[in-house]
Design a protein around this nucleic acid. Structure first.
Lengths: 200, 200, 200, 200
DNA sequence: AATGAATGAGACTTCATTCAT
DNA sequence: GATGAATGAAGTCTCATTCAT
């Protein structure tokens, strides 16, 4: 008569809650993600949720953090991959960004929906890390003007992020190929001014 | 000295309610803008609100619409004004955009916070009108390639809008002057590719 | 420059309010008859209603009283008329009762709907007057057993009233002619036991 | 000594809510039976009520249904019991009906008060089942004229129901014994015409 | 560790009534 | 006498959170 190790069970429960929260968030949006619904989707009682999370926001913050990290990891991997390419790094990255964001539109929407509520308070980790990653890459390719590089990175991240997100959420009458073309052109042109070879 | 017409009183009350809603929205965000709080801020009873608005969303929709229109009017006026300038139209527009968005950051945040919830359903009027305005202007300066012009306009609006909004909401460590410089450079460079003289 | 005599104007206003209340009551039932709706239907302001009526119930009580009196008058007239007939008085009265109740089903429903709420408190005038009328008629035809006569009258009124009202409200699968036949038979048979000639 | 099963606790709570609703309904009528009052009377929070009932009407519908069923069961049992009697079945049934209706006058009032609001839409089950029961019994005693039998049953049920209910609610100056006498006479006389032996 | 019944503050909304004009 | 804007108590319902088991 062996009882399952408690640590392992706890871990499994937390995972189920987070997984359920992620699903609910993707399907019903931020305001539709109530604690009771999450608990039900996880197959646990409402009380169980509070064994592992301070309050409702703690759950969703964690999920959003996780979503961010998933995106970040994916983007980072792809980003680093493009550095080996001989040309059209920018375009490859835009493509990759669109792939990442189109994979789970519901979560992207939840992320976009929730972001303005917490900006200035907490959960800015994701964006900052991406900022630094991009800044670092730019710096590696173009050593001087380090001060300006941070601003450029900040701008690039916002432009790439919001144009692609808007395209996903608004579903405007613009083909993906056209979007890639134009966004790459804009970013490429901008980078060219920085002294970075446009097509690399 | 005639008695105050009842129409006028009603009008005044509606204005107080809308004004209060605007204030509450700016100070406490979309979810913090409850009917009771709005009524209290307006100095009227909860019931009064329902003499003039169908329900809670009707109030906030109206306020958001109003905020959008105020921004639109301001941007439109400034945008048209810049057309007379001999050079640096882009920069002037970026400046103007920042002025408009910095005036009431709370409302801009509320707008950004609520937008993703309704995207795809209703209230896309503001963005669409701006898209068309920009497209029209581009077309006036550069007659051919009309198909591409719409995509370009769509991109420009998103880039200008989100970069400035992000700067307002995130308050990053980037001076305003630098932002204006960089954003103008990016947009100017992009427009140059379209065949539009970059600095006019 | 003559101003309309105030008494007359007042009277007209009261009539419009009562008429509107009657209409609203017939169309939307007791719970749907709100003061604001009545005022609107009467083409007056809500405040005006309170110049003439203590409160909401005062209006509806008055309307219901009026409806009762209309029915009573109609029934009384017909009832007295049947006394001259040589036979089948009962049947003639049942017919007449159905005519009266089918004329305005909405109001009959409102009456039936509201009756149980006030029974035991107020507004029993109508039923009592009808009771006495019937008792008087029975007494005129059958002098002795006066004590029993009151009970018989009470029963007759309830039976005639509720069977016809149920038929109007429930709209069961029973033709009117059949109902008249059966109800007359029941009442006639009952009266026969009292010593009153069944067909008179 | 095992822990109280959760099902049992839920069941107990539902029972307390229904019991409280029944009490409130009896004491304050349909319109006085608010969710908060019911919850308070049940000794639970307002939210608890909504764990078990869709909305306010669901509670009251359930209670009224229950009251109807209680009455039906009681009436049915007594009705069947009288079939064995050698004579005066009718009188015995009238007595029984009065017993049933006098037991909880407040609930009978609530039932009578609410019935006209829903007539023609839903919840006519009780009356219909009684109609059929009576029709069936009549048919068993008097095989032919089956068409007429349904009308007769419908009439009998309304007469018995409304005369007794009126007597309970109006509390007129008629002794119970007299009422029984007269009502039995009326029904008995009517049945005699149908070919059913009057006193059996 | 897990449960899930229970909570209760607070949200939105209605409507009979009042009162300054 | 009439108005109708304003009121505010009270009603229904939700949902993040707690706690006895």
């Amino acid at each position: 008569m062996r009882r399952e190790p408690s640590q392992e069970r706890s871990r499994a429960t937390v995972d189920r809650i987070l997984g359920a929260a992620r699903t609910v968030l993707a399907e019903r949006g931020y305001d539709g993600a109530g604690t009771n619904r999450i608990a039900a989707a996880a197959g646990v009682g409402p009380g169980t949720v509070y064994q592992y999370f301070e309050d409702k926001d703690a759950i969703l913050d964690r999920v959003l953090e996780q979503v961010s990290e998933d995106l970040e990891a994916r983007i980072l991997r792809a980003f680093l991959g493009t550095l080996h390419h001989e040309h059209d790094t920018v375009r490859a990255n835009v493509e990759m960004l669109l792939d990442a964001l189109t994979a789970e539109p519901g979560l992207v929407r939840a992320l976009a929906e929730h972001a303005p509520r917490t900006l200035g308070s907490r959960r800015r980790g994701f964006a900052q890390r991406v900022d630094q990653l991009v800044a670092g890459t730019l710096l590696a390719q173009h050593r001087d003007e380090s001060a300006r590089v941070e601003t450029v990175a900040w701008m690039l991240v916002r432009v790439a992020e919001h144009v692609t997100i808007s395209w996903v959420l608004e579903a405007p009458d613009v083909p993906r190929e056209t979007l890639v073309e134009e966004l790459s052109a804009m970013i490429g042109g901008y980078l060219a001014r920085l002294g970075v070879p446009a097509a690399d």
